[in-house]
Write a protein that binds this DNA or RNA. Structure first.
Length: 939
RNA sequence: GCCCGGGUGGUGGAACUGGUAGACACGCAGGACUUAAAAUCCUGUGGUCAUUGCGACCGUGCGGGUUCGAUUCCCGCCCCGGGUACCA
């Protein structure tokens, strides 16, 4: 029998399920290894061929680690809350819980056919009350905590109130939005409601009035990373700025740690860089500029305090609170008009019209803190309200944006940093932090770096301000005006938010009649009937964002069924963190930042033993679609083959890639594809000459292009179709063989016959042909292996081990092919070689490996076998074919004993006939010998 | 604009810390088997020239450099992919 993958794969998938082969051992005496895939959102369209790429890689690694004797945790679950299910619910009225359930069932079915070794007993779903109970629980912990900048960790809110009643907030160094200072006696005199209001400014989960990204089409606010170029990431709807009361998480408290700890984790450099940029740490100074004839002052943040003598004007964000207070009477009309205009411009316009310079003079003047000269105060929309203090000291000579603004409004430009080259500062700003100070009083002659230190000292000693670090990172908006998410376990008493007691969790997501906002614009949860805490107090009606459940799920897998805790101490201490995390790079500034934040928070509360969620992370590349085209001759139903299309006037049409193989169109399938093509005519080309043909040998070649994989482009390939045709083992091998895991590549099946052949050849190694190659019978001998056979085996053991350890899955598939080719050439059918080989391939092609293993006489799954030991002995050579180079160019090879030393090698090489020919009587200038590698003769 | 990746045959890709460039696979060409086709197996396959025989020269985006030797290291440029966007 030829290898029947359909039967064999089904058999072993059933076996694994029935025997719970991949259920994680509770034995903690063995070393642990935690392999995790990024949480999938179960979308309605199921998996396409790109999704399994990472799953296959992580599965290989997990299976490999099991063979190596590790206790492996390799779980899977679903990030089941989210917008698409809810959008679908709005359109169809179907409850999101039901569609989500269906989608999950479909996902599971697909995942099973790939032969992935997940421990399904630990499956989690974020929409399951048993799960979101703990998401809510962590939220309450965030609500009940504040960030102490002194101890650099989150602490329970009780330590804060204790401090307040002792010292007020005078000495406190906390991460806060509280602006007013109070004493202990003031604090103690506050009413309960006043105290609650103040505490909200310290809590890590807090409610505040904030400018948010409001998406009217989705009817919800969005976090910064959910907005791309002024449009919502999901659906591409316009987003506007809106001031709203919002739940937020104080992630900014962790900015410094999130930044610094990146150095300690093995994540892709580009991903870490993205996080660094997103956090956006900048060092500089914060200082006050007094206003002329006023008690008021404008506070600015600058990264270039060294250029302060070049500050010729100031610019405020249009939203800045001082604007209305400082505007002079004669400028009042102009300022108001300008602010009106700015408000009308949408966020998208503002972003796309970056180059448009707008602004207006307030009529007010500030006093330069060092020269005492008056400088005008302007308003400009290039200054962002949300960053720094919302105001800048404008140094047009050394800041491109200030320069553009100054030129547009004819404001003075004064050079204060002299670079190495001559330049006209009126033409272009000089932004580099390189050069010497000029026109800068006591800074003159100092280098930028030294000037920076000097001026910050001066600013502090004169009481103008101090050195300051600023972050671009904003607090994370946490509430969503949507139905399909975790309810926030908060109720309101006198409009003050109160935490539900932990013991009463979970707060179950209530049923609603419609998934739409109420007539008054309240979120859908406001529709829930009689949904009140203790039947009296209104619950919070916003829900948590999609990333809430995924910010801690890696911990739940460690102890998924636990009713008493999110995971037991015991499990947390054993499993610690994720050893290998595989997923897409698109989560760089979303999920991967939040999961790090929550991990640090839980660590601070001593709830978990680790500070970072994942030691090693790999971004798998995207699999793009490869679209095929047919060329219809204009105004006809005639289709012309690719190489002949230029002779006609044609229209290119997407054709379903599933009826095209190696760019050759299946004509009958095409006719059946759509009714309109049933009587299509074809102009075919000759296979070889690319000329027109009339005979049967003609074929229709399609055009091809790489595009995003999408239904509308007819280039979606589902793994199901591939598995049906070639089998799961073949798909697994092929997806790995395609290239390095991290690389993005278009899906094309042109090479899949290679891996399919490999599986057949592997099978044949263990079998002998009978009936003239028609059938195969099991044929493994007990003979002693030859040296050459052992050499092939051990070379492969070493290669495969090295490849897996460095996540080079594509080269290990190549090495399997080499191994099988060589053993086939040697006609090797010995158990002592083929048994270890089966274990080696078991991680990659588990179904065929199990089948061979069973036939070899084993009655336990191959996943319990030990990975073959590598033995150097079999690879020891006594000869090496040295490449002999003349002047660095390889000319020929020469067999030389490896036992020889340099001098002996040189003697042997120089006496060789071929070398003599090149030397032609001369003696070489130099001979370089690297034993065991190369000989180079310089003439 | 800025910040990361990356440019190797017809194609996907390989080459450990500077040491035989193109492993492995696809495709293509030729051959065997077959009435024929498919499947399978064998041989060849970077380019140019020479093919009567040895072979010779060029070649890892382009131009320089370091080195006995560079796909690998350094400098300058070009192109492609991803991220980001007035963050003071």
């Amino acid at each position: 029998m030829e290898y029947n993958f359909r039967e064999v794969e089904k058999k072993w998938q059933k076996y694994w399920k029935e025997n719970q082969t991949f259920k994680t051992d509770s034995d903690q005496s063995r070393p642990k290894f935690y392999v995790l895939d990024m949480f999938p959102y179960p979308s309605g369209s199921g998996l396409h061929v790109g999704h399994p790429l990472g799953y296959i890689a992580s599965d290989i690694y997990a299976r490999y680690k099991r063979l190596k004797g590790f206790n492996v945790l390799h779980p899977m679950g679903y990030d089941a809350f989210g917008l698409p299910a809810e959008q679908y619910a709005i359109q169809t009225g179907q409850a999101p819980a039901i569609t989500t359930e269906q989608n999950i069932a479909r996902y599971r079915e697909q995942l099973d056919t790939i032969g992935l070794s997940f421990d399904w007993s630990r499956e989690v779903r974020t929409s399951d009350p048993d799960y979101y109970k703990w998401t809510q629980w962590i939220f309450l912990k965030l609500f009940g905590s504040w960030y102490n900048n002194q101890s650099k960790r989150a602490e329970a809110i009780e330590t804060l109130t204790a401090e307040f009643s002792k010292n007020g907030n005078q000495m406190l160094d906390a991460c806060t939005t509280q602006e007013i200072k109070f004493t202990a006696s003031q604090w103690n005199a506050f009413s309960e409601n006043e105290k609650s209001e103040i505490l909200l400014n310290y809590r890590l989960a807090f409610i505040s009035e904030a400018t948010v990204n409001w998406c009217p089409a989705l009817g919800t606010v969005l976090a910064n990373e959910e907005v791309k170029e002024g449009l919502s990431e999901r659906g591409g709807h316009p987003v506007e700025r809106k001031l709203m009361k919002q739940w937020s998480l104080r992630i900014t408290a962790y900015a410094d740690r999130l930044l610094n700890d990146l150095d300690g984790i093995d994540w892709p450099e580009s991903l870490k860089e993205q996080q660094r940029n997103w956090i956006g740490k900048s060092e500089g100074a914060q200082l006050k500029f007094k206003l002329q004839n006023s008690d008021l002052a404008i506070e600015v943040f600058t990264t270039r305090p060294d250029t302060i003598f070049g500050a010729t004007f100031m610019t405020l964000a249009p939203e800045h609170e001082l604007v209305s207070k400082i505007t002079s009477n004669d400028q009042k009309a102009a300022v108001e008009k300008y602010i009106e205009e700015v408000k009308k411009r949408s966020e998208r316009e503002r972003m796309t019209e970056v180059k448009r310079i707008t602004g207006v003079f307030t009529g007010a003047f500030a006093v330069h803190p060092f020269t005492a000269k008056p400088i005008p105060v302007w308003i400009g929309d290039y200054v962002l309200a949300g960053y720094g203090t919302g105001a800048v000291m404008s140094v047009p000579a050394h800041d491109e944006r200030d320069h553009a603004f100054a030129r547009h409004f004819s404001l003075p430009i004064v050079e204060v940093i002299q670079g190495s080259e001559e330049r006209n500062i009126q033409e272009q700003s000089y932004d580099a932090k390189d050069g010497k100070c000029i026109n800068s009083d006591f800074l003159n002659g100092l280098k930028v770096k030294d000037a920076m230190r000097r001026i910050i000292d001066e600013i502090s000693s004169r009481g103008l301000g101090q050195g300051k670090v600023n972050f671009r990172l904003r607090d994370a908006i946490f509430g969503r005006q949507r139905y399909w998410g975790e309810p926030i376990p908060i109720y309101y008493k006198d409009a003050i938010p109160h935490a539900m007691p932990e013991s009463e969790l979970p707060l179950i997501l209530p049923e609603v009649d419609k998934y739409l906002p109420t007539e008054d614009g309240e979120p859908p949860l406001a529709r829930a009937k009689d949904w009140k805490y203790k039947g009296v107090y209104e619950y919070e009606t916003t829900t948590m964002p999609g990333w809430a459940g995924s910010s801690w799920y890696f911990l739940r897998y460690m102890d998924a069924g636990n009713k008493d805790a999110f995971a037991s101490k015991d499990a947390l201490n054993y499993w610690q963190d994720v050893d290998l995390y595989i997923g897409g790079a698109e989560h760089a500034t979303g999920h991967l930042l939040y999961v790090r934040f929550w991990t640090k928070f839980l660590f601070d509360l001593r709830l978990i033993p680790v500070n970072e969620p994942a030691r090693k992370l790999i971004n798998q590349g995207m699999i793009q679609g490869r679209s095929n085209f047919v060329y219809r001759i204009k105004d006809s139903n005639q289709f012309v083959s690719f190489n002949l299309k230029d002779k006609y006037e044609t229209i290119a049409l997407h054709v379903d890639v599933n009826i095209v193989e190696n760019d050759v169109l299946d004509l009958n399938a095409f006719k059946n594809w759509r009714a309109e093509y049933a009587d299509a005519g074809f102009i075919l080309e000759d296979k070889v000459t690319k000329a027109e043909t009339t005979g049967d040998s003609g074929i229709y070649i399609c055009g091809a292009e790489v595009e995003k994989m999408s239904k509308s482009k007819w280039n979606v390939v589902s793994p199901d179709a591939m598995i049906e045709k070639y089998g799961a083992d073949c798909l697994r091998l092929y997806e790995m063989f395609l290239g390095p895991l991290e690389l993005s590549k278009p899906w094309n099946t042109n090479g899949i016959s290679g891996t399919s052949n490999f599986i057949r050849k592997l099978w044949k190694l263990y079998h002998s042909p009978v009936n003239g190659n028609k059938d195969f019978v099991w044929s493994v001998s007990e003979e002693q292996p030859l040296k050459t056979e052992l050499k092939v085996l051990h070379k492969t053991i070493r290669k495969i081990t090295e490849d897996i350890e460095r996540y080079s899955f594509n080269t290990s598939v190549s090495n399997f092919m080499i191994c099988v080719n060589e053993l086939t050439d040697l006609k090797c059918n010995k158990r002592s070689i083929l048994e270890p080989l089966a274990i080696l391939v078991a991680a990659y092609a588990p179904h065929i490996a199990e089948e061979l293993w069973e036939k070899l006489g084993h009655n336990k799954s191959i996943s319990t076998a030990p990975f073959p030991e590598f033995n150097e002995e079999y690879l020891v050579e006594d000869q090496f074919a040295y490449p002999i180079s003349i002047n660095g160019k390889t000319k020929f090879n020469l067999e030389i004993s490896l036992a020889l030393n340099k001098e002996e090698i040189e003697k042997e090489v120089l006496s060789a006939e071929e070398v003599q020919k090149f030397l032609a009587g001369q003696s070489p200038k130099k001979v370089i010998i690297v034993p065991g590698r190369i000989v180079n003769i310089v003439i």
